[in-house]
Amino acid sequence: MSTRYAMVVDTRLCVACKACVLACKAENAIPEGYCRDWLVEEVRGEYPNLTAENRSERCNQCSNAPCVSACPTGASHVADGGIVLVTPDKCTGCKACMSACPYDARYVTPDGYVDKCTFCIHRVQRGQEPACVSICPTRTLHFGDLSDPDSTVSRLLRSRPYKVNHPESGADPNVYFLV
């Protein structure tokens, strides 16, 4: 079975410190005012019966990626391990991929091409974890190969209840949230 990279976010451990956001910006030299990952803090209910959930979100590296289908030039493509990437030299900045993304996870850089989370593929290819995963102080974020039943992500998804964002989009996302 071929490699299928995924990320698992433990919403029970996340304290919304935003270290993942800063690590990503530093590692990938993200322009000021932009971000590839972000924090969502969701509070439900009425006092005193409140529940809170913190989610570190990013591109879901969908198995059925609508951004890749929408791209007219092939700039958006699926790389090894199922990671969705954008080749800047092929991107016209037409923004078809941005309108197709159910998660609004893409943006146009000041240089004119579209950018998004790459699961830090340059680090993964060196055997390292994505920057956001490696810096997380509460071990909220886990990264690994879903096709390997012994990987951390596979074991976590076997042992804990989880959800994905907007499953109704049909995009088959690969960022999972332990609940």
């Binding site: 935003k18 956001v21 971000c35 972000w38 969502v40 969701e42 609004d104 893409r106």
Partner: peptide, 13 residues
């Protein structure tokens, strides 16, 4: 009731 604090402010998005 749900309150969502969305920490993303990408231009155009």
């Amino acid at each position: 009731p749900v309150e969502i604090d969305f920490g993303r402010h990408n231009p155009g998005v």
